[in-house]
Simulated scan of single mutants.
Amino acid sequence: MDKISLVVPCYNEQEALPYFYEAACKIVSEMSEQAFEFIFVDDGSKDNTLEIVKKISVEDKRVKYISFSRNFGKESAMYAGLQNATGDYVAIMDADMQDPPSLLPEMYTYVTSEKYDSVATRRVTRDGEPPIRSFFARLFYKVINKMSKTDIVDGARDFRLMNRKMVDAVISMEEYNRFSKGIFGWVGFNTKWLPYVNVERVAGETKWSFWKLFLYSLEGIVAFTTAPLAISSILGFTFCLLAFTFMIIIIIRTMLFGDPVGGWPSLISVMLFIGGIQLFCTGILGQYLSKAYLETKKRPLYVIKEDNFS
């Protein structure tokens, strides 16, 4: 009998958890030929998420939980769940019901009958999202796929079912600055993409503000491409060439026509523009240096406050 582990990162999901657990149990009961375990990872929630999970774990021995000492982020929560999952197959799911449990039987069929290593989901619509957020999300996928050799699919969710080989490969990547959508693509393996229509949260509010998503997108770009460093080098070379060209023009003009005093506005504009480019390129370099700095510290990705694995 195959065992399937359901890894569910949770941060302030007290309202959505009962709905998720009920829906997941319904699908689990239909998949009676497989054994299941639930691994809820409480990412330092400030509401009653942990208390609800504890109550469920008393009534259902298949339910395990890990509670962090503070909020370490969804990436750390997913990694902790993967590390502690014992199933032959492991699925990562959100507790807000935007990852429909009803897709699990189809996903399991693909990884067993058609010999895929993983089945990943992608949204074909973004209904319910603010238009500006959808625009920048699509722009991010276009930019990172132009820059990076790692294939990151537009609309990809973290919701996927993986076999043990792929799970072990993902766990082996112990980097501190994690971007799982890129990691899943980088490790390779044969992946089946399962499209579905976007589903809105069943309860509660999203924890991803525009600013958090922006920082997360920067994390992905820095983690999986060095193209911004090449761009800054090209910009530096281009402006050096332009500066040399203008210097020759000024020398020739001075020799032929003298040295008029005019030109202060254009001079200041050029200086400010070049100064901005320099700061921009320095910022790009700083992003890569900061990530390298954090990696060298070798800090753990998370700290467990309590769990029920022992």
Rank of each mutant, 00 (worst) to 15 (best):
S290M: 12
K165M: 04
E175M: 07
S217V: 02
G81D: 09
T238C: 06
F179C: 04
I284E: 05
V197P: 01
Q83F: 02
L218V: 10
E75G: 01
L285I: 11
E75S: 13
D117M: 01
Y176W: 09
F72Y: 15
D99P: 01
F135M: 11
L139G: 02
W186L: 14
F280L: 15
T226N: 14
N177D: 14
E75W: 11
W264I: 12
K115V: 02
L279S: 07
A169I: 01
D99Q: 00
I183T: 15
I171K: 13
I284H: 10
L241I: 12
S209T: 15
D259F: 13
V261H: 07
R122K: 14
M31N: 08
I144A: 08
W193A: 03
D88Q: 07
M166N: 04
V63T: 13
F210V: 11
K26S: 14
E15K: 15
V111L: 07
L82V: 05
Y216N: 12
A137M: 08
L301Y: 00
Y288H: 08
Y216E: 14
Y110M: 12
L242V: 12
K207T: 14
R299Y: 07
N84G: 01
V303G: 01
D154M: 13
S69Q: 11
I52S: 03
G204H: 08
S134H: 10
P131Y: 07
D43Y: 08
D60A: 00
I252R: 08
S113R: 14
E30D: 11
T49V: 04
G236W: 05
S269N: 10
C281I: 02
N190L: 10
V53M: 11
A95M: 00
N84H: 14
Y141H: 15
A77D: 09
Q14E: 15
F36D: 04
N48F: 04
Q98E: 15
A91I: 12
